[in-house]
């Protein structure tokens, strides 16, 4: 009788721990996802300053600058989902990259301290976004493993938890220090 009670309590405790850990993992995924959002905002906030600094020098790049400003104003839309923001960030990054590549033709801008600082902050934010994406993917993998393996699969059914797709790795994550190339341009 006592043994049966002990076994029952043990099973119950194990069940509670497992249930809590599943919820913890799900929350971790949500947290990691919002971290991407925070970093994207930080990055979008750099755009006005960057555009302001370069526009006095880069007279022949006005089309690229207009495009970046336009994308930035779209990113300010509160109703955008994080996926849409990630997509916008990709387009902004491409625009900024092409700007950075044309810096060579503007020696005054290249020597501007404000621009140098912005350039390094931009690079910093690029690596920070890559880090948040990697954290998100690690949390998703952890969560997916937990809900797909026994006994997590039992609880997942009860909680209506389903698999989440990881974010595809970006060029920055695949190439080790792509940011460095911006400075060598």
């Amino acid at each position: 009788m006592i043994i049966a009670a002990i076994v029952l309590i043990a099973i119950l405790l194990f069940g509670i721990t497992f249930y809590n850990s599943l919820i913890g993992k799900k929350n971790q995924v949500t947290n990691a996802f919002s971290a991407i959002d925070v970093m994207l905002k930080k990055r979008f906030d750099l755009i006005p300053n960057l555009v302001e600094t370069v526009k006095q020098y880069m007279l022949h790049e006005s089309a690229t600058l207009t495009k970046i400003v336009e994308l930035r104003s779209q990113a300010g839309n509160a109703s955008l989902s994080t996926e849409q923001k990630i997509d916008l960030d990709k387009q902004i990054s491409t625009g900024v990259k092409s700007l950075m590549l044309s810096v060579e033709s503007y020696p005054d801008l290249k020597a501007n301290q404000n621009f140098i600082n912005l350039q390094s902050t931009w690079t910093e934010s690029e690596e920070q976004i890559a880090a948040t994406r990697r954290t998100y993917n690690a949390s998703v993998t952890d969560y997916n493993n937990a809900i797909m393996m026994f006994p997590g699969s039992l609880f997942a059914g009860m909680l209506n938890y389903s698999q989440i797709t990881v974010l595809a790795s970006t060029e920055e994550e695949r190439q080790n220090i792509s940011a460095k190339s911006l400075f060598n341009s």
Binding site: A32, E127, A130, A131, A138
Partner: peptide, 15 residues
């Protein structure tokens, strides 16, 4: 900090 750890330990740094 999970994010900071990955900011420091980039794939290149791990290698």
């Amino acid at each position: 900090d999970q994010v900071e750890a990955r900011y420091i330990l980039t794939p290149a740094m791990m290698e």
